[in-house]
Computed example of a mutant assay.
Amino acid sequence: MATRYAALLRGINVGGSRKVPMAELRTLMEGLGHDGVRTHLQSGQAVFASDHGDEEALAAELSTAIAAHFGFAVDVIVRDHAYLKGIVEACPYPAGELEPKQLHVTYFSAPVPPERFGEIDRDAHLPEEFRLGDRALYLYAPNGVGRSGLAEQLARPRFTQGVIATARNWNTVTKLVELTAD
């Protein structure tokens, strides 16, 4: 039986550059042999089924195909339904009590050591805060990520050096669980 996955594409369709039309992405993924391909929003999420079983290989294959088809490189993270559901279940914040814009998850392509975030003065950013999870970072930003000084600091390259990192708001996080459960 095929496993359901979500592909998270980093940095596409933002500000008019690095355009990846979702219909073309679906066709491209179907051409790679994936079944049940669906996209969510224009910001780089696709769900699909595959018998492959290797998330890193699936991500590399899709990234290579995107570069060949669209002419620019796109970082991709692929995660299965069980992982995505586990991220929601392990949320350290009361997601049901918050507005979705207040809670974000940054997915990492590999584990990031907690020591890497040791220099951040967490008290200076309160009530904003973050916690690490399984290849993920949960960010609570009560005034939204656009006004978050902590989000700005966490986006600095030194915190994600050596890994792909891509963030999604809570609505998208939970929608991907729903879409990969089909």
Rank of each mutant, 00 (worst) to 15 (best):
M1S: 11
M1W: 06
M1T: 10
T3V: 15
T3F: 10
R4C: 06
Y5R: 03
A6W: 15
A6L: 13
L8F: 11
L8Y: 10
R10A: 05
R10M: 07
G11R: 13
N13L: 09
S17P: 00
K19I: 01
P21D: 08
P21N: 08
P21C: 05
M22L: 07
M22C: 09
A23L: 08
L28R: 08
G33F: 14
H34G: 10
D35E: 15
D35K: 15
H40W: 12
H40V: 11
Q42S: 06
S43F: 08
G44T: 04
G44V: 04
F48W: 15
A49Y: 15
S50R: 13
G53I: 01
G53C: 05
E55W: 12
E56W: 08
A57S: 06
A57F: 10
A59P: 04
A60F: 12
E61I: 09
E61N: 10
E61H: 07
E61Y: 02
L62S: 04
L62I: 10
S63T: 08
S63R: 02
S63K: 11
T64S: 09
T64P: 10
T64C: 02
A65T: 06
F72M: 02
F72A: 03
V74S: 13
D75N: 15
V76D: 04
V76Q: 11
I77K: 15
V78W: 04
R79E: 14
R79N: 05
R79S: 06
D80V: 11
H81C: 00
L84P: 05
L84W: 14
K85Q: 06
K85Y: 02
G86S: 06
V88M: 11
V88Q: 02
E89F: 05
C91G: 02
P92N: 00
Y93E: 08
Y93D: 00
P94A: 08
G96K: 03
L98H: 01
L98E: 07
P100A: 05
K101Y: 11
T106V: 14
Y107I: 09
S109T: 12
A110P: 00
A110C: 01
R116L: 04
E119Y: 00
E119Q: 03
D123E: 14
A124G: 10
H125Y: 14
E128I: 14
E128R: 08
L132F: 14
L132V: 07
L132Q: 04
G133F: 02
G133T: 13
D134W: 01
A136W: 12
Y138V: 07
L139R: 03
Y140F: 12
A141G: 06
N143L: 12
G144W: 02
V145K: 05
G146Y: 03
R147S: 05
L150W: 08
L150A: 13
L150R: 01
A151N: 14
E152V: 05
A155W: 05
A155L: 10
F159N: 12
F159M: 09
Q161A: 15
V163P: 09
V163E: 05
I164F: 15
I164Q: 09
A165V: 00
T166F: 04
T172M: 04
V173L: 07
K175P: 01
K175Y: 02
K175N: 13
V177D: 10
T180G: 10
T180K: 09
